[in-house]
Design a protein around this nucleic acid. Sequence first.
DNA 1: TTTATTTCGGATAAATTTATCCTATTTATA
DNA 2: TATAAATAGGATAAATTTATCCGAAATAAA
Lengths: 144, 144
Amino acid sequence: MFSKACEYGIKAAIFIAVNSSEHRRVSPKEISEEIDSPQAFTAKILQALVRNDIVQSVRGAHGGFEIEKDKIATTKLSQIVFAIDGDNIYKGCGLGLHTCDENHPCPVHDKFKVVREELREMLENTTLEQLALDIKSGVSFLKI
Amino acid sequence: MFSKACEYGIKAAIFIAVNSSEHRRVSPKEISEEIDSPQAFTAKILQALVRNDIVQSVRGAHGGFEIEKDKIATTKLSQIVFAIDGDNIYKGCGLGLHTCDENHPCPVHDKFKVVREELREMLENTTLEQLALDIKSGVSFLKI
DNA sequence: TTTATTTCGGATAAATTTATCCTATTTATA
DNA sequence: TATAAATAGGATAAATTTATCCGAAATAAA
């Protein structure tokens, strides 16, 4: 469904959010350990999140990654997915046609529309804050 | 969402179904032209569909690919997807956790469940016949 | 100002997916 | 039985995704 990069990106953002809410910056090393992902690759994905203004980075000693408090509440899952995988997952044609719309639908266009719409809504209605809260309270998990 | 291989496989199966319903066998060349896919790669995918007993092949002169009439009506989209991509798309964890269930959910487990369920239902309730009929009547399209 | 710490970013490698090529095998028919 | 027409399948290549490595740049603190 999502690329590995996107899976790591989502989990990393959640972990950063959890720690930022407790005023702790975290390093790629810490992040990759907590979300069980390759460190250098995760660092690349973090760069993408920084460029897309989803995560803040602080270079140098005592640096690390963090997310502003307001952003934790306002950032949607869709923004993270978009920053890494683009919007093809909930916008593109299910069978890869270049043009696929009501006038020129692929064979699964109508049936797919429902699923894609459900996915889009889910991504747009889920905030980093909600996901981080469940991790903090031990209701959900980032690895294993 | 689906792999390229899976997209080609679905479109190929629909095209074969359309032609089989008119008692015509089709070749990989014809198929790849009609669904706009690379011929040799498509041929590989057809082999997989044959091995999974979704499509029949007839070797030698006047051979080609076909689908038995009953199978057109009973084959579900889910079977084609399963034969090529497996069931990870609607069974696996959205964030790639090895274990992800009610007892040990990933952060998006509950929210994802709805989408995955919708997808699974769609794939299991859509038959090749339905898709082929829309192509025959010019309501939907296999390329462009 | 030097040093230690930390992210940034380019180069490269490994793995997987997508795609091509060529020969073997099968089958109908002349 | 020979030939032509087809699919099967192995080997290989190209493209993309995933992953690693290392030096450059930035920053806090000694």
